[in-house]
Each structure stands twice: as C-alpha cells, then as structure tokens.
Amino acid sequence: MTTTTQPPEQVVVPAAAKARRASGPSFWTTRRRDVLTGYLFILPQLAGVAVFVLLPVGMAIWYSLNDWNVFTGKQTFVGGENYAALADDPQLPKVLLATVIFSGGVVVVNITLGLLIAVLLNRRFRGVTLFRTLFFSPVVVSVVAWTLVWGFLLQDNGGINGLLGAVGIDGPNWLQHGDTAMVSVVITQVIRSVGVNMVLFLAALQGVPEELYEAARIDGASSRSVFARITLPLISPTLLLTVIVTVVGALQSFAQIAVLTGGGPELSTTVLVYYVFQQAFEFNDIGYGSTLALMLLSFVMLLTLLQWQLRRKWVFYED
C-alpha cells in the first residue's frame, strides 16, 4: 500500500501542449483544465459521502441531544442528558468488555488464519484451486443464512457436538455459557469472512519477488526466518489494510450476534453495535441509541487513527 505517495509533481509540460498553449492563450490552461477535471471526477464520490455519510452523522448528533416519544412523535431537547446516562448505565462496562474481546478475537483469529491458509495455498499442486474456492465460499453466503445454519449446528444436541461425540469428546453447550458463546460468535464470524483476507494475502504473497527467496536460501536462512525477515515485511502494507478493514468490520457485526446469541448469556456477547440496536430499535430510545452509536463511531475513528499513526513503526514500504 502506498497511500502516502504523493501524486507525481506536474510533469514537464509536453511539447505538444506547450505548442497548443502558445497558439491560443486562453483562461483554460492545461493546468486549470486539469484542476477542474480533478474536481469533476471526484464530485460524485464526494457528494455521496457528504449526503449519505456526513449529513446523517450531523443529524445523529442532534438526535443524541434529544429525547423522543415514538408513539406521540414528540421531541424534547435534553442537552447532555443522554451523555450523562452513559456513566450511569450499569450494563455499559460489560458491553464494552464484550466488544473488546469480540473485536480483538475476530481480528487476531481472522488475520492469523487468513495468513496461514494463504501460505499453505501459495504453492502449485493439484487441487489448490479447489481449496481456494472452498475457503472463500462462505463469503458469498448471506450472513443471515450462514448464521442460522451455525445456530443449529451449535445446539447442545446439534451437529458440532454430534461430531465431537463421534470421536469421544463430550462437547460443551456452546451458546449457553459466556465463554463458549463468545468463542462461537468469533469463530463463525471469522470462518464466514476470512476468505477475503486470504485472497488479499495470497495476492500479496505472489507479489514477493522470487529472487529474494533465492537469495535468502543461498544465505542458508531457515524457512522460519525467511518468513519473518522477508515475507512479513514485504506483505506488511496488506497486513495494515486487512487489520483496519477487519477491525471496522468486527465492530459492526450485528447479524451474527443477533441470530446466534441475542447478546446472551448474561450480556456476554452483547457488543456495542447490538446494544445500540436494542436501545434505539427495541426500547425505542432513539436519543440514547444515537449517543451510543456516536460513541461507537468515535472508537472506530480513534482505532483507525492509532493504527495509521503506528504504521510507520511496522509497515515496510518499497519506496
């Protein structure tokens, strides 16, 4: 990833253009025309973000300062009351803890597994295409369908425990205990989405020049140190991108939690985004729900900023 690379300095004006400019001096120099084209090119995207992202965020801030009665449609300005309520909410600390465990778990397992599969598949043998397809296939299955099926399989008398029983293991009642429920939501989430990271890693691995490996081998490096000293640094830009996208995705996983555990048992899997949903849509508390949503947004922003700042420390750039 080379996002920091600046667009190239304006190239020396080519002779033809120079000639054109000389022949007809007008307001529309190549440079001006270029600037205008630039703005026009980004206009649709910029307008989309402004109208469908920034404006709604502003409106959400307004909602968070109000109290709503959904049955009468009455809106009352309450100032910082919803923000003060954050401190008095006895459930919030547990929710934040669950959010950290879930997102952390998803990121660690997702990146590790994605990298592992990519490394295993980054060679030529018969069936590699088949495996690539198999590992990627859950990505195209809808989240709802995928999670419903896992819900059956994870029941006490479901398929997972049936399988474990066949090899003599007495499986736990997955979704009924806090720890195993958390493991279940993390794993089902990772299995469904790791395919994308796997492909990105595969792409990155295939971009590592073969000569570097040759050179390392000639130097007698072990495969472990080749991986640590050559592979990892060279794919670190991809790692950064995947970590950011995976963190953002994990913080927004709603359907999985709702279908598998409903946030239980005992709030153990109630992550922030699910809590936002409950407050705003189940308890009809739009004001507090918006306040929580904005808190979630600030977390995402902060985390991303942090990773962006830290990238210089561990991301290797070819240029």
Partner: peptide, 19 residues
C-alpha cells in the same frame, strides 16, 4: 427471537423517522 430482532431493526428504525 433473534430473527425477530433482526427484522425488527428495520422496522423500528423508522422510529427516528417520525416526527
């Protein structure tokens, strides 16, 4: 119930809508 919740998202979202 979970599915109920899922679909519910939707509907009540409308809440905001109202006023």
């Amino acid at each position: 119930r979970a599915k109920k919740v899922l679909t519910a998202v939707a509907l009540t979202t409308a809440l905001g809508l109202a006023a």
